[in-house]
Structures are given as C-alpha cells and as structure tokens.
C-alpha cells in the first residue's frame, strides 16, 4: 500500500504509485454504485466538512453523497451562507470549522492555493475540491478511472485537451496525472488561453491552435467548459469560439471511432460541444459522474478510515457483491 495521504492538495504532488493505488481502491466502490442499498457503515461516526467557498453543485453533491454512502456525517459550509460575507478571513472560517472536530475538510475555493494555505495552518486533512485555476485533483482521478475502464489502461495515450487551458484547473490536474503515466498531450484553444509555458508542465506536451490538427491521433479528447465570463476578458466573440473550437461529430471523426470524449461539466451544449457528440457513444460524460462518486468514496475512505476500519471497509465493499 502506498504511503498514507495526509492531504490531497494537488495531483502534481502525488506519485504514479499513489495514483494507481487510489484508482485501485476506487474499483470496489464503482461496483458499489450499482447496489440496491447504497449505504456502508465504514465511516460511521466520522464527519466530513464540506467547505465550498465557490459555487459548486456537482462536486459538492458528489462529495456529500460519497461521505453519506460511507456512513459519515457531513457539515456544510457554502459561501452564500458563510461568515465570509461578513468579512471573516478564510483562516478564521477554517479554524472555526476545525474546532467542530470534523475528520477532514473538503475545500473548494476560487483562489489558487487556498487549500494549500489552509492545510499549512491546520492539522486536519484537507482535500482540495478545486482551487482557482490551479488544480482539481479528484476530477483528474475520476477522469483517469473513466479512461482506464474504457481503454483498459491510462498509459501512453494521446490526449487532446480543448478549450480555455490557461484558466483550467481540470487541464492542469489531468496534465499532471496522465503525464505521470506516459501520456502525450496536445493542448488546443485560442492562443491567449494557451501560453507557451504549458509545455513545461510535462515532458510530452505540445500546443496547437487548430482543432483539426489537435485531434489527429487522439485516444482521449477532454473538452473543457467555456466560462462565458472569461470570454469577455480577451473579448473573443462566442460565435468565433464555436466556429473554431467546438467539438463536432465531423471533427471527432478525425480522432477516430475509438477516441473517448470527456467533459468535466457543467457542459454547455452547442458551445464547446455539439449535442450529438455529448450524447454519442464516444461520450463518457455520465460515467465520469458515477466514477466521481467511486473516486471520492475511495479517497475519503483512504484518508480518514483508521487501520482496522480500513480492513472492515474493504471487507464490506467486497462482501456487498
């Protein structure tokens, strides 16, 4: 077993062994999502604090459901209702949460490094559920699980990522994760979202501003969400983006019939992705959501179950077959 994770702040910090271990741990939990009765007692008595300082629906619900299915209780903090609005600092809010003695904090924040900052000041394990434009580790883990399911491996694949690369924490986490398994990357998007320095994030990363060229030979295509508020910044017309970068069935043919299409959601049909692609056989979008539960259950389990509970949990997840 890999060394115990104290925090999960970034994929960059993990070794390939640690990642493989987490993906293996997620496997029984994938099965588990198909059961009629989706409740374990593994983390009964444990509490997971969900601190979402940035609006999020799917990631928050996914973590909350993962915790609940493991038998843990959750504490919910959402930006709208938090004292941050009253001027309290992040550190004070986090310390307050910590004083309620949860077993870990799952944190989403709009500032890069916010989870790292909180983890540095608190002893409690912190799981980064997305920090600014830095990383979104559990998204990359669930993407990897999805790819491994469909293709049997995550090693040495050709991965194309399309969209607003510069502002994407999903892109960064995927670059780090799949890069550790020998994948080759083509990053594609409008030039102002595609700084040269991204080539330094991995050994085999290239950039292309032409989508047809970027899709050539792709085994996996990750389509990023286009945040409309970002479009104002370089003042790129929406129609221009759709014309040049939307993943259409015709373009997907360049990659071939075996290529997988992933999207971290929320997806805007007709903007970054053509509905026919989103609903097509190559799309993994809904599997990603289900796998998100499995990955997050595995992660909570690995991070907060103590030794003997770990064995019980593995037993119960398997026994539930």
């Amino acid at each position: 077993m890999a060394e115990r994770l104290r925090d999960l702040l970034s994929i960059e910090d993990l070794t390939a062994q640690q990642i493989a271990f987490l993906l293996d741990e997620a496997k029984p939990f994938q099965e588990f999502q198909r059961y009629l009765l989706k409740k374990l007692a593994t983390l009964r008595g444990k509490t997971v604090a969900l601190a979402f300082f940035e609006a999020s629906t799917r990631t928050r619900i996914s973590f909350a459901t993962a915790a609940s299915r493991l038998g843990a209780d959750t504490m919910n903090l959402q930006a709208e209702s938090s004292s941050l609005k009253k001027g309290e600092s992040l550190l004070d809010t986090a310390r307050t949460l910590d004083a309620m003695k949860p077993d870990c904090i799952v944190m989403r924040h709009s500032c890069s490094g916010a989870a790292d900052f909180v983890a540095r000041h608190l002893d409690i394990p912190v799981i980064n559920a997305g920090d600014g434009t830095h990383e979104h580790p559990t998204q990359a883990l669930l993407d990897a699980l999805t790819i491994r399911d469909r293709r049997g491996t995550i090693e040495n694949l050709n991965v194309t990522i399309i969209g607003d690369i510069l502002h994407s924490r999903v892109a960064r986490s995927n670059l780090h994760l799949l890069g550790k398994f020998g994948c080759r990357f083509t990053l594609c998007g409008p030039p102002m979202w595609l700084p040269r320095e991204f080539e330094c994030l991995g050994k085999r990363v290239r950039r292309s501003s032409k989508i047809d060229d970027a899709l050539e030979g792709a085994d996996v295509v990750i389509v990023l969400r286009v945040q409309q508020e970002r479009l104002h910044e370089p003042s790129l017309p929406l129609d221009e983006y759709i014309l040049l970068y939307q993943l259409t069935p015709e373009r997907l043919q360049i990659a071939g019939p075996d290529a997988l299409v992933l999207h971290p959601g929320p997806m805007i049909r007709g903007l970054e992705i053509d509905p026919a692609v989103a609903d097509g056989p190559q799309s993994c979008v809904l599997e990603q959501v289900t796998n998100g539960l499995a990955v997050r259950m595995a992660l909570l389990f690995v991070m907060i179950a103590t030794g003997s509970e770990t064995d019980d949990a593995r037993g119960s997840a398997h026994a539930a077959h």
Binding site: E12, G113, D131, T133, H134, E135, R172, E197
Partner: peptide, 10 residues
C-alpha cells in the same frame, strides 16, 4: 508571468 505562474494557476 511564466512557467511558475502557469504551474500555480496564479
């Protein structure tokens, strides 16, 4: 702006 800002997402 540079490699590190891109890495850190700052």
């Amino acid at each position: 702006e540079g490699r590190q800002s891109v890495r850190l997402g700052l």
